[in-house]
Amino acid sequence: MSGATFLILLALSGGIFATGFFGLMARRAILFQLISLEMMLAGPALAFLAGGAWHGSQQGQAMFVFIIILAAAEVALGLALYLALRRGADVEDSDTITGLKH
């Protein structure tokens, strides 16, 4: 792998992360925000794997395993929360949930 490829991959992973971040802030529906969070996790995963390939180390893949565990936990809790909110008060707009303010 050439250094230029590595830099381009890092830039792309940063782009995917930034896209997810943008979605998280711009969208108001909870499901879209969860999808954006997935993108935010996918970006660093690419960066880790690119780094692992660049340094010839398996630690990149090991970190990827952790990221996928984190994503699984996040999705399980996020979707459960979404369903609970839908069932309780029929909320799907995250801006209307401000009860934890104080």
Binding site: F21, M25, D95, I97, T98, G99, K101, H102
Partner: peptide, 11 residues
């Protein structure tokens, strides 16, 4: 600052 909206916290 405390709006309670998750998007603002993300910002």
């Amino acid at each position: 600052i405390q709006t309670g909206r998750s998007r603002d916290y993300a910002l």
